[in-house]
Design a protein around this nucleic acid. Structure first.
Length: 896
RNA sequence: GCCACUGUGACCUAAUCGGCAAAGGUACUGGUCUCAGAAACCAGGUUUGAGGGUUCGAAUCCCUCCGGUGGUACCA
C-alpha cells in the first residue's frame, strides 16, 4: 500500500478510506518472521545455558523430557512432550532457578539397521541425518534447550563409558552369562528381554516370539528387586500412582515357602528331593501330587519306565507351543505322569509327580505342590486325571467335602485333616507349618519375585559392542580399559541374515589380554535400553572425558527434578534407569538412590480416522470437508468423491494415516499456537484429541492479546512501570482489574509449577484478558492498571507461547528478554476480596446470596441473610433448628 | 479373571479441604460492522452414567450396578 493514501491518527494507526488498515504494529497477529527472529536472538544471547556465569548461587532445577529415537520425523506426541517440559523449564528459569534442560538422541536401534538393509544407507549416516532434520523441527518449536549438552548415544564418546560400566558390572558379578531359554524374535533376528515381550509378541515389530536355548549376557537386576520395590514408596506423590502400581506388579513380590519333597528313589545325579515354591504352605497337608514344568532340568531323570516315552513326547509338545497359546485363557490344562514319586515331607505318603503344561520354569522353582481342594488349576487338573482332592482348609460355617465340591476353595479358613495343625486359622498356619518344616530342614520361608534378570545381548550391529573377549584358554575376559571404546566397524554388509558383527571377516579377531593368544571379541551388542538407563547422568557433564559423568556435576544436578515422558515406558525404561542408579551408587559414583523425583506421564495424542470405501485410510489432507455439513468428508482422490467413514479418535499412527505433521502445523499456525494447543486442550495426563478448530481457537486467543497491545500500545507504554492503583472505592474497576491480575498470578503459578494443569493456567489468563477487554482506558491511572495486567499476562504466558511474548514485551517497552524477566509475584492481600458473595441456603437449597465483608461474623451474616427477601420467605413461620456457617463461603439455615 | 484409573452442556474441559456446578475453549444460533463475505466484537442454552447410603449440605466420601481406558494374566 502506498504511503500517500494512508491517514495516520494520533495513535499511529493507519487508516485508508476511513477504515483501519494497518498500524505501526500490525493488528493481525502473524507468527511468520516473529518466531525465527526470537529463536535467533535467544541463540545469540545464549539464554538457555545451564551453569551460566553467576548461576552458582541459584538453586538448581533439572527438567528432562525422554529423549527421542531419531526416526527422522517428529510427531505430535513429541510436540506435546516437549511443550510440557519447556513450560516447566522456562517458568523455573524465570523463578530464579539455574535450569538444566537438555536434549539428545537415543540413537542406537534396529530401524537404522533395517534402513541399511532396505536403502543401502549406512546406519550411522541414516541416524545422523535424521537427527539433523528432527532438530530443525525442535528448534522451530522454540524449545529452550541447552544445545551445548546435546548427546547421541551412538557416538563412541558416549558408549565407551557404557562399555566401561559393563566391565565394572562384570567384575562385581552384576553382568553375567548364562544359558537359558530366551525370547527370540524371528523378525528382528535377535533375543529380547522379558519386559520387551508383550502378549507373547515383540514390543517393536509384534512378531510372535519363540523360545531358544542360548547363552546370553544378563544384568542381575533381581539382586535389586527388594530395593526397587521398597523405594517405590518414596516416589509416591511424585510419580503417578498408575506407574508405581505397574512397577510393583512387574516386580511381583510374593512371600511363601520353599518346601522339599524327598524322592522315593534318588536320581542318577544324586538329587534326593524336589523343591517347590508355594505361597500357601498352610495347605501343605492337602498336597496330593506334584506338577513340574516341561522345561524342568530333572524331567528326563524323573521319567520312569513305561512313562518315559510319553513324558518326552508331552514335554516336546509343550515346549514347541508358542507363548501366546500357552498364555491363552482357554489353554487346556494337561499333564503326564512321570512315573516317579516323592514323599510328603510330613506324612511320608507317596505322591505322584506329573509334568504339566501350565507350570512355568521361569517362576519359583519350576515345580509346584498341587493342592486340588484349594487351588483352581490343581482342582481342574485333579478332576481331569482322577487325582484325589483332600480338603484341609474348612470354609467358615460350611462343610466342604473333596468328593462333592465343584470348585476349589481358595480363601482363608481353619485347618482340618492336618494332624497337629488342626483348628489353626489358615493365615497363622502359614508361619507355623513353615517353621515346622524349617526345624526339620525340609523347607524354609522364601520370597519369590516375578522380576527376572535383564537379558541384554542383541545379535545386531547398531548397538554398543559388549566389551568382552572369548579366549579358549582363559575363558571370558574383559577388554582392557585402555582399549575402549570398542568401536563398531564401519565396513559392514547388511544382508538381513545373522549378526553383521559375527559375519565381519576380521573385526572379532583379537589377542587375548591375558595370554596373548588368538581370541575372539563378543559380537553381540547391548540392548538399546542400556543407553537410556544413564543418559540423564551424562547430560550433567556431556563432554566429560574422564568417565561416564563428572561426579561433581552429577552431585549438583541429580536427581532429575521433573521427568516427562510417555506411559509406554512405565515399566521398561523407568525400571532399568532406577536399577542403574542403584548400581552406580554401589559403585560409589552417585550418592542418590533414585534418578527421578517427579514423573509426569503424558497421555497419547489421538485423532479421528478417515477411511474411503475405495481408497482405504486417508490422510487428513486427503479428505475434503463437505460445506455446510459439519463432520462430513469426501475422499479427495481424483474422480472418487465418495463419502469417507469418520472413525473414532485413535492414537496417531502412520498405518491409519490419522497423523498431523508438526512442521505443517507450525507453518499454518505458528509454533506458539501449536504449543498452546497441546497444553490447553486437555490436562497433560489425558489423551489429547487433535482438532483444527482447537488449534484455531488458540491462534485466535494469541491474536486477541496481540490486538489489544497493537491498539492500546501507546497508552500502555505511557503508563510504563508506574505502580498500579490498589486502593479505591468499592467496586472500582481499576482496583478490581489489579486484584484479578494478582489472582491470575497465583493461579498460573500454582498450575504451572506445582499442579501441572497447564489447561487451567491458560484459561485463567483468558479470563484476565476478557476482563481487560471490558475495562475502559479513560485516564492515565487506568492505563497503568491495564499496563500492569498486560505486562503480567506477557510474563505469565512467556513459558507457553514464548515468541509472541517476546515481541509483545518489546512492544510494551520492556527491557531485555521476556523469558528472562522475574516471574510475577502476587500480593496475598490482593487475592482475597474484602467483600465477598455469601451463599445463603435454607435446608441445603440455595435461596439467595448476600454481599458481605469477608471477615463478617455468623451473626452479621445471619442478619444480612434475613434481610434477603428470598431467604426470609423460606424461613418465616418456621423454627430455626440449626445454622451452619462457613466463614467467607456460605450460611445454611436449617428449619423445621 | 485380577489390579488401577475414569464417567460433568453438542464436544474438550474446570470446580485445589464435603460448601453458590459449570470458569475457559470449540461448535451452534442470533446480532453489530460490511454492497457482500472474511475477520473482529456483543448476546444466548444443562443439572454431574444409574440406584442407594452418610451429611445441615455430595460432581467430590461409602456401597451396588452399568459403561470406558490402561496394566496384567495360568506367578503356584
Amino acid at each position: 500500500m502506498l504511503a500517500e493514501i494512508l491517514d495516520v491518527d494520533l495513535l499511529g494507526r493507519c487508516f485508508h478510506g476511513g477504515r483501519l488498515y494497518c498500524a505501526a504494529m500490525d493488528e493481525r497477529y502473524s507468527p511468520k518472521g516473529i518466531e525465527e527472529k526470537w529463536q535467533a536472538r535467544w541463540r545469540e544471547g545464549n539464554v538457555f545455558a545451564a551453569e551460566a556465569p553467576g548461576s552458582e548461587s541459584k538453586p538448581k532445577y533439572y527438567v528432562l523430557e525422554m529423549f527421542p529415537y531419531p526416526s527422522g520425523r517428529l510427531h505430535m506426541g513429541h510436540v506435546r512432550n516437549y511443550a510440557i517440559g519447556d513450560v516447566i523449564a522456562r517458568a523455573r528459569r524465570m523463578q530464579g532457578f539455574d535450569v538444566l534442560h537438555p536434549m539428545g538422541w537415543d540413537a542406537f536401534g534396529l530401524p537404522a539397521e533395517n534402513a541399511a538393509i532396505k536403502a543401502k544407507a549406512h546406519p550411522a549416516d541414516w541416524t545422523y541425518s535424521n537427527i539433523a532434520s528432527m532438530r530443525v523441527t525442535q528448534e522451530r518449536l522454540g524449545l529452550s534447550y541447552d544445545w551445548a549438552r546435546e548427546i547421541a548415544t551412538c557416538h563412541p564418546q558416549y558408549y565407551r563409558w557404557e562399555q566401561q560400566l559393563f566391565i565394572q558390572m562384570f567384575e562385581k558379578g552384576l553382568a553375567y552369562r548364562k544359558g537359558a531359554f530366551v525370547n527370540f524374535c524371528p523378525s528382528c533376528q535377535t533375543v529380547l528381554a522379558n519386559e520387551q515381550v508383550e502378549d507373547g509378541r515383540c514390543w517393536r515389530c509384534e512378531s510372535v516370539v519363540t523360545q531358544k536355548e542360548l547363552t546370553q549376557w544378563f544384568f542381575k537386576i533381581t539382586q535389586y528387586a527388594e530395593e526397587l520395590l521398597r523405594d517405590l514408596d518414596g516416589l509416591e506423590g511424585g510419580w503417578p500412582d498408575k506407574v508405581i502400581a505397574m512397577q510393583k506388579n512387574w516386580i511381583g513380590k510374593s512371600t511363601g515357602a520353599a518346601i522339599r519333597f524327598p524322592l522315593r528313589k534318588p536320581l542318577a545325579d544324586g538329587t534326593a528331593a524336589l523343591e517347590v515354591f508355594t505361597t500357601r504352605p498352610d495347605t501343605l497337608m492337602g498336597a496330593t501330587f506334584l506338577s513340574i514344568a516341561a522345561e524342568h532340568p530333572l524331567l528326563d531323570q524323573l521319567s520312569e519306565g513305561s512313562e518315559a516315552a510319553k513324558v518326552k513326547a508331552f514335554a516336546e509338545k509343550v515346549r514347541s507351543t508358542d507363548k501366546i497359546k500357552r498364555g491363552a485363557v482357554d489353554y487346556e490344562k494337561e499333564g503326564q505322569f512321570t512315573g516317579s514319586y516323592v514323599m510328603h515331607p510330613i506324612t511320608g505318603r507317596a505322591i505322584p509327580v506329573f509334568v504339566a503344561n501350565f507350570v512355568l520354569m521361569e517362576y519359583g522353582t519350576g515345580a509346584v505342590m498341587a493342592v486340588p481342594a484349594h487351588d483352581e488349576r490343581d482342582f481342574a487338573f485333579a478332576k481331569k486325571y482322577g487325582l484325589p482332592i483332600e480338603v484341609v482348609i474348612q470354609k467358615p460355617g460350611d462343610k466342604l467335602d473333596g468328593a462333592t465340591m465343584e470348585a476349589a476353595f481358595t480363601e482363608a479358613g481353619v485347618l482340618v485333616n492336618s494332624g497337629a495343625f488342626d483348628g489353626i486359622p489358615s493365615e497363622d498356619a502359614k508361619d507355623k507349618i513353615t517353621a515346622a518344616l524349617a526345624r526339620d530342614g525340609k523347607g524354609e520361608a522364601r520370597v519369590s519375585f516375578r522380576l527376572r534378570d535383564w537379558l541384554i545381548s542383541r545379535q545386531r550391529y547398531w548397538g554398543a559392542p559388549i566389551p568382552m573377549i572369548h579366549c579358549e584358554a582363559c575363558g571370558v575376559v574383559p577388554a582392557p580399559l585402555a582399549s575402549l571404546p570398542i568401536e563398531l566397524p564401519r565396513d559392514v554388509e547388511f544382508t538381513g541374515e545373522g549378526s553383521p558383527l559375527a559375519n565381519h571377516p576380521t573385526w572379532s579377531k583379537v589377542a587375548c589380554p591375558k595370554c596373548g593368544k588368538d581370541a575372539r571379541r563378543d559380537t553381540d551388542t547391548m540392548d538399546t535400553f542400556v543407553e537410556s538407563s544413564w543418559y540423564y547422568l551424562r547430560f550433567t557433564s556431556a563432554r566429560h572425558e574422564q568417565g561416564m559423568f563428572d561426579p561433581r556435576a552429577a552431585a549438583r544436578w541429580m536427581p532429575v527434578d521433573q521427568y516427562i515422558g510417555g506411559i509406554e515406558h512405565a515399566v521398561l525404561h523407568l525400571l532399568y534407569a532406577r536399577f542403574f542408579v542403584k548400581v552406580l551408587r554401589d559403585l560409589g559414583q552417585v550418592k542418590i538412590a533414585e534418578p527421578f523425583t517427579r514423573l509426569l506421564s503424558q497421555g497419547m495424542v489421538c485423532k479421528e480416522t478417515y477411511r474411503c470405501p475405495e481408497h482405504d485410510w486417508r490422510y487428513p489432507e486427503e479428505a475434503k470437508a463437505v460445506e455446510g455439513q459439519a463432520g462430513k468428508f469426501i475422499c479427495g482422490e481424483e474422480g472418487c468423491g465418495k463419502e469417507v467413514v469418520v472413525g473414532r479418535s485413535e492414537k496417531m499412527a502412520k498405518t491409519k494415516r490419522n497423523v498431523i505433521e508438526p512442521l505443517s502445523l507450525i507453518e499454518r499456525y505458528g509454533a506458539d499456537a501449536a504449543r498452546m494447543f497441546s497444553l490447553f486442550v486437555a490436562p497433560p495426563d489425558n489423551t489429547l484429541d487433535y482438532s483444527d478448530a482447537a488449534v484455531e481457537g488458540m491462534s485466535r486467543f494469541i491474536g486477541r492479546i496481540w490486538r489489544y497491545v497493537a491498539i492500546n500500545g501507546d497508552k500502555l507504554r505511557a503508563a510504563g512501570r508506574a505502580a498500579p492503583p490498589t486502593q479505591g472505592p468499592p467496586g472500582d474497576p481499576m482496583v478490581e482489574l489489579v486484584r484479578l491480575t494478582h489472582k491470575t498470578i497465583k493461579k498460573v503459578t500454582e498450575d504451572t509449577t506445582t499442579r501441572f494443569r497447564f489447561n487451567t493456567a491458560i484459561s485463567s489468563v483468558m479470563e484476565l484478558l476478557n476482563a481487560l477487554g471490558e475495562f475502559k482506558l479513560l485516564a492515565p491511572p487506568h492505563f497503568s492498571a491495564a499496563a500492569f495486567a498486560v505486562q503480567t499476562i506477557v510474563k505469565l504466558l512467556s513459558p507457553y507461547c514464548p515468541h509472541v511474548c517476546e515481541e509483545l514485551w518489546q512492544e510494551l517497552g520492556g527491557i531485555g528478554f521476556a523469558c528472562e524477566q522475574a516471574w510475577p509475584v502476587f500480593d496475598p492481600a490482593l487475592v482475597e476480596d474484602d467483600v465477598i458473595t455469601l451463599a445463603v441456603q435454607v435446608n441445603g437449597k440455595l435461596r439467595g446470596t448476600v454481599s458481605i465483608a469477608r471477615t463478617a461474623s455468623e451473626d452479621e451474616a445471619r442478619a444480612a441473610a434475613m434481610a434477603d427477601k428470598g431467604v426470609a420467605g423460606h424461613v418465616e413461620g418456621k423454627t430455626v433448628k440449626k445454622v451452619v456457617f462457613v466463614p467467607g463461603r456460605l450460611l445454611n439455615i436449617v428449619v423445621g
